[in-house]
Structures are given as C-alpha cells and as structure tokens.
C-alpha cells in the first residue's frame, strides 16, 4: 500500500500553520480595532487609537497575504 505520509504530514503542517496564523492575525486586528471602542471592558490594557489602527492594518494585511499566497500556490504552481 503506497501511503503518501510526506504529503499527509505536509497537509497537516500547512493547515495548522495557515489556520492558526490567519485566526491569530484576525484576532489581533480586532484587538487593535477595539482601541476605538468607547466601552472599556477589555481584559488587557488598551492600545492608543493610533497604535490600534496600525496593529489592525498590519495584522489584516498579513492575514490577507497568507490567504493570497495559498491561492497562488494552488492556482499558479
């Protein structure tokens, strides 16, 4: 039986890395956006508005790049 263990491992590692990275980046972006919120019920110290916007922009861009890189691998290569 020819089991492609290498490919299966690649699926696991790529999926784990991509999913965790995207979710963490989006969550970080939302944390950054939270700096604009009026209510202060957050569990951690809040960022300044400017810093929050910067964190959100960088995180969302990075998440988008991860997704676009995935599509590039699937479609182009």
């Amino acid at each position: 039986m020819a089991v492609h263990w290498g490919s299966l491992l690649a699926v696991f590692l790529v999926s784990l890395g991509a999913a965790v990275a995207v979710v963490a980046l989006v969550a970080t972006a939302l944390w950054g956006i939270s700096a604009r919120a009026v209510t202060a019920d957050a569990a951690a110290p809040r960022l300044s508005r400017r810093m929050g916007a910067a964190v959100a922009a960088v995180s969302l861009t990075a998440a988008a790049l991860v997704v676009l890189f995935g599509f590039w691998v699937i479609i182009v290569r």
Binding site: F12, S15, L16, A19, V20, V22, V23, A24, V26, A27, T28, L30, W31, G32, I33, S34, R36, A37, T39, A40, D41, A42, A43, A44
Partner: peptide, 21 residues
C-alpha cells in the same frame, strides 16, 4: 487544527472589546 486556532483566537480576542471582536 481548529482546536488550536480557536484556543489562540480566544486568547487574543478576550484582550479586546467584546462587542467589537
């Protein structure tokens, strides 16, 4: 994969404003 992503997502999201996240 989903368990790991959920865990880390909640860890980060709880630092932000509930309604916003």
């Amino acid at each position: 994969v989903a368990l790991s992503a959920t865990w880390i997502g909640y860890r980060i999201a709880t630092r932000g404003d509930r309604r916003t996240t």
